[in-house]
């Protein structure tokens, strides 16, 4: 069964987001099935980040409909619950809590909002730190870690909430080149475990390896959606061809 035949976890229908007169998102529609890995790319300012930030309502969309696990998102308790239960997010700037240790960063959410006991939360945190391969850093503060390690902690923090969908907002863009791979590896592993993912990234090698679906955005709209084989070898739109040429040139 191909991913597209399964029921969508996330469904965006004609979603628009306006900043004044500027359409950051312009009638975007996208279905993401359980277990599907979507990679979103496009030039800066094309609305990629806005798109995924609308999925967990860090940005509020103005038009259209976003359905998450059967719940239509709006400004209400039910929406907040379904987002909290379903979606995890990793940011470009990591956004770790600098005043807490790595372990405390990981247990805060589960203990305070999931009602997990302190001990269970710690065990869970160590499990995911193991998975991102930095269990030995548990008692350090974020600023004592390298960028790549910090981002892996951020991934572990999101996983500790046991989400069904992970959103990645340019997770390697703030990293030094030699640290990009360790983060991509962790993400690829996660993809291999069947996690539903939407990644905004410029790492085309990673996209080719991991994505089920490539989405190309420009000027707030989705220009092209295709499986990676087709997307990278035979893109339909001229804008997409142009973009790929630019970023694959070097």
């Amino acid at each position: 069964m191909s991913p597209n035949e399964r029921t969508p976890v996330i469904r965006l229908h004609d979603v628009s987001k306006l900043y004044g007169d500027f359409r950051a998102l312009d009638a975007v529609s996208l279905d993401v099935a359980e277990g599907e890995r979507v990679v979103v790319c496009g030039p800066s300012g094309s609305g990629k980040s806005t798109l995924i930030r609308c999925v967990n309502r860090l940005e509020k969309h103005d038009e259209g409909e976003i359905v998450l696990d059967g719940v239509t998102l709006g400004n209400n308790r039910e929406s907040r619950r379904v987002i909290a239960d379903t979606v995890g997010m990793v940011f470009q700037q990591f956004n770790l809590f600098p005043h807490l240790t790595v372990l405390q960063n990981l247990t805060l959410g589960p203990v305070r909002s999931r009602g997990v006991s302190e001990n269970d939360a710690k065990a869970r945190a160590m499990k995911y730190l193991d998975r991102v391969r930095i269990p030995e850093q548990a008692d350090k503060y974020p600023t004592q870690l390298s960028g790549g390690q910090q981002q892996r902690v951020a991934i572990a923090r999101a996983l500790c909430m046991e989400p069904r969908v992970m959103l990645f907002d340019e997770p390697t863009s703030a990293l030094d080149p030699e640290m990009i791979n360790e983060v991509l590896e962790v993400m690829a592993e996660l993809a291999g475990s069947g996690m539903t993912m939407i990644c905004v990234t410029h790492e085309m090698g990673f996209a080719r390896r991991v994505a089920d679906t490539m989405v190309f955005m420009d000027k707030g709209a989705i220009v092209e959606t295709a499986p990676p084989e087709k997307f990278f070898t035979n893109p339909e739109s001229a804008r997409c061809q142009d973009f790929l040429q630019k970023i694959l040139a070097h």
């Binding site: 997010m89 956004n95 805060l108 305070r112």
Partner: peptide, 30 residues
Amino acid sequence: VDKGQYEAAQTVALGYTDTMRFVILPQAIK
């Protein structure tokens, strides 16, 4: 305190009170 801290708190499902108490105020007070 950086806006990203509120967003991160939101993604680990903290409400307003918990976000203030455990994330924002400790950094602000320092």
